[in-house]
Amino acid sequence: MVWMSVKKEPVYVKVAYGVCAMVLMAGVAQAETTPHTAPFTVSQDTYGPSAGAGLCGAEQSCFQVHNTAYKVTEPASSQASVSTQHSSVFDSLSGILNQTLDVIRTLSSGLPSLPFHLSEQNRVVSWVEGLVVFYLFFRLWLAYRRRRAFRRAVQTGKRLINSLADRLQIRRKQLVYQNAYGTTIYDKWEREKAAFMQREMLNCLNEHGYQNYIDRATPELLAYLDKVAFDTPAEPEQKVSNPDVYSPDMNPFDYERYCARLLRQLGWEAIATSECGDQGADVVASRGNTRIILQCKLYTKAVGNDAVQQVAAARQHYGARYGAVVSNAPYTIPAQQLAKTNKIFLLHHDELQRFIRRVEKSSSFRIR
């Protein structure tokens, strides 16, 4: 019953048992042979005929009584016979346990000695204790291996969950909802988690040889799955955008404001229509009787026909004299052909101010 209770204890309790057994074995390893006190003996010299006569006066009868009551014993031969009996019984067992005891003595040599010593006749106690210590160490070793395998199984499951975090978050949003009464319903999500553990998680643990730990690891993995699925993903780092300074990473709306700013630097009234709505025009600029419509495109690829069509329609809508597409990117050949037909200018933003100066020098340009 004792060993059954030890088996059910946590690992740290088993370690405590092992340490206690080692401390006890320290005394066994350092034990010294303690001779037994010889039995009570009476020699013939002490209780001879003269001694008997001195006691009761009947020399012969008293001598026989005393000789019968106090027989002479030989302690050395008696102890030798006992040792012989013990050694004959345990010689076969000692051959098996010698190696175990050597290991135990080596481990316990650095431990403090006990305040008592064990007799050589109690060797059986040391052998039994050696077996107990060996068993405890064996059980601790098995518990350590199982614990290590379990932790590795949990870590493997968590890596799988992390690799599927984005998909789990989408499924959670799809399956967790509020009913007409405002109660959050998790039924479909719970079924989804159970199916995930039975399929994806079990297959993953099978591949790594941890399938025996699926039942034990399931509560911890389910809790971690919920944590990942309900976690709000981190917001992507916002790129710094300044409408006063051009950057290929700037916001498209700030790019429109940047182009309008270039026109205002030359004395034009320029408005970015993203602030008030547009009809295909991103910037409407005017000075005197001249109005210019700009379509601003912050692209990473070549600008196509759509931009040319939009600015051509906006020029007619606003009654502008000039229309231009301004971009940081090149233009496709079809866009260049369509722009030539509709008299639309295709510009890079670095060319915008130079284009405005040419407009100001044209004969059709008048300032009120």
Rank of each mutant, 00 (worst) to 15 (best):
I293E: 11
G304E: 02
C259I: 13
A260R: 01
Y258L: 04
G304T: 00
G280M: 10
I271H: 06
A272D: 13
R261H: 06
Y255D: 06
V303K: 01
E256Q: 15
D282R: 12
C259V: 13
G267A: 09
V283D: 12
D306S: 01
K297V: 04
G280Q: 08
A307F: 00
V283R: 10
V283G: 06
G267R: 11
I271V: 15
A285H: 12
G304K: 02
R287W: 01
E275H: 11
V284S: 02
R257E: 12
K301Q: 10
C259E: 09
I292T: 05
R257F: 04
T273E: 10
G288K: 09
F253R: 14
G280S: 09
C296N: 08
R291E: 02
G304H: 01
W268L: 04
E275N: 04
P252V: 03
P252L: 05
Y255V: 12
E256G: 09
D278C: 11
S286A: 14
A285D: 11
Y258T: 06
F253K: 04
C276R: 13
L266D: 05
K301S: 10
D254L: 08
A272L: 03
E275K: 06
I292A: 01
C296L: 05
D282T: 12
I271N: 11
R261L: 06
S274G: 09
C276P: 02
E269Q: 07
N305F: 00
G304V: 00
N289C: 14
G304A: 03
D254P: 01
I271D: 11
A270L: 03
Y255A: 15
G304F: 01
